[in-house]
Nucleic acid binder design. Structure first.
Lengths: 181, 181
DNA sequence: AATATATGAATGAACG
DNA sequence: CGTTCATTCATATATT
């Protein structure tokens, strides 16, 4: 991925002055900025590398010949990060309890109910609840797998694991399944 | 030696998600984004210049662009992982565009065509295309459902939705590391 | 600070 | 098609 193609694409759905932005618009904006931040970082790194290897070769290019507005320093990547939901102690307890009781992932309606109940103990959304159950289940399962079949192979990934014999069906399904003509 | 002071300071007066921005905050935001745009441009220009002058000097460092083409994304890195398809930036753009145009899920023939076109921008199969449309549609739909039957509690969507612009994350593995430097 | 881990969220693929 | 699973990404937190 060529880092240089600066996305000078037009801004996203941004609300006209005088109006409010939706959360979605805000999120889009945030990501847009994030992209710029990333590109800048990459370019800077690249530049450093070049300068380093170029070293004392040429006395040119010392320092930035491009004037930078001091105001730049006020930008940050705080904006590029969004805080994620964190269950409160109480919520977590309830969730854990439900996880044992419920059989499988709660359906939509159940999620709604749970969300309502949990919302009395802190900020929460249906999505949060849904994700929590999904993750909880997936990770429980994975841990069990790992417990039985162990390979002396540990990468850097924290929770990634190699399923190895799982992916048996790949192509072909598609054709048979839907597009068969 | 450190030519570009990329700011990493906390961001400013931005309204917390769920709240509205004032015109002033909006202005500030826009100004800051514009700054990023400028920085990117300058960096790109600087990089080009360096490459140009260095290119004639030493035969090394050819290519101002470290092989980072979007289409090649996710292929050569960890050979052991990366089992599932991931659309390249280009592919994603095309898909999004098609999603708006096409009415409903493309039929078999259409899928074939699309696949062929997209294959020029990276590894892809008909199954991938099919799945993508299915998911895209399903998630869009669900989002709308939730959006209407919602009593303003918080944004909720069960299986996640994607504001499309979302995939704006710049491709490249060192992105994350760099961002933290 | 740098690295490791826990975990919320995103998303390709599969299932009924 | 609507749901659910499996995997990966990204960030908050913990540890050294």
């Amino acid at each position: 991925s060529h880092p240089l193609p600066v996305p000078h694409q037009p801004f996203c759905p941004i609300a006209p002055p005088g109006q409010v932005m939706t959360d979605e618009q805000f999120e889009t904006l945030r990501r847009q900025i994030s992209v710029y931040a990333t590109i800048c970082q990459q370019l800077v790194e690249m530049h450093k590398a070049i300068m380093a290897q170029q070293g004392s070769a040429s006395g040119l290019w010392l320092g930035p010949s491009i004037p930078f507005d001091p105001s730049l320093h006020s930008i940050g990547h705080k904006l590029t990060s969004r805080q994620r939901w964190t269950p409160s102690q109480t919520q977590l307890q309830i969730l854990e309890r439900l996880f044992e009781q419920e059989t499988g992932t709660p359906n939509k309606q159940r999620i709604k109910e749970i969300t309502i109940e949990l919302s009395q103990h802190g900020q929460i959304s249906e999505t949060n609840v849904y994700n929590w159950f999904q993750n909880r289940r997936a990770r429980t399962k994975r841990k069990q797998q790992v417990g039985t079949a162990n390979n002396g192979d540990s990468e850097l990934d924290t929770d990634a694991d190699v399923p190895e014999e799982k992916r048996n069906k790949v192509e072909g399904e598609f054709t048979n399944r839907v597009l068969d003509a």
